[in-house]
Nucleic acid binder design. Structure first.
Lengths: 106, 106
DNA sequence: CTAATATTCAACCAGATGGTTGACTATGTC
DNA sequence: GACATAGTCAACCATCTGGTTGAATATTAG
């Protein structure tokens, strides 16, 4: 995955509304209006958020008449999980503590 | 983990320079100057990036005289992995294909 | 004491972001 | 045809971002 694509994925998910949209779409496809109904912001704002998610490849849109059907495309999430997993070794609290101890020593 | 903390973590990692800093610190602690040496931007710019990472809890700083020792704190990465793992079900390409098929049907 | 080193702070700039409102396009319904 | 519905586009605004340069602060070295 290109660095720019990872940029877009991380950036897209750095907004709580957009993460909530992802969560919503995990429950099944929806139209723009359906998604917007959940949020206290304007439909236009939701439309913009969807464009960001779409550009990051997290949402796919299919036009059906005047309605746009949105579905979750989770492949970028897998790339994020893959990136973070490179640092799994550091997640362990005990390892963190050991590192701290070793640094204290020198 | 609070939504705001997740916001900060995702946002911090949406920049390629900051991801490279994380990668650098995974190789061991370093001073600000050491980190900055790798990048074609000013030391000041790196200093700002470090502040962003620190605010997201991804970097811890210990002052030792005039030097600041930086170390990776990967706990926020674990939270990100946890968040993305909620959508593991959707990562599977075959499932994506199935979903597409089912939608085509109605 | 002086000079060099490590780092931050402050001001500035261009461009992105997240929100708004108002107008527009396209499709469906009566 | 007339009206309602689904959605975008465009302009605007305040704030954030990533970078710069120049000055300030602290610590170490000569």
């Amino acid at each position: 995955m290109s660095a720019a694509a990872l940029d877009r994925s991380f950036a897209a998910l750095s907004d709580p509304t957009r993460r909530a949209i992802v969560s919503r779409l995990a429950g099944g496809p929806a139209r723009v209006t359906d998604v917007a109904a959940r949020f206290p912001i304007s439909l236009n704002a939701v439309s913009k958020h969807l464009k960001v998610l779409e550009r990051a490849g997290l949402v796919r849109r299919r036009r059906a008449g005047r309605e746009h059907h949105l579905e979750l495309r989770a492949a970028p999430l897998r790339e994020i999980a893959r990136w973070t997993s490179r640092y799994e070794r550091f997640w362990n609290e005990k390892l963190d503590a050991l590192d701290a101890f070793l640094e204290e020593e020198d």
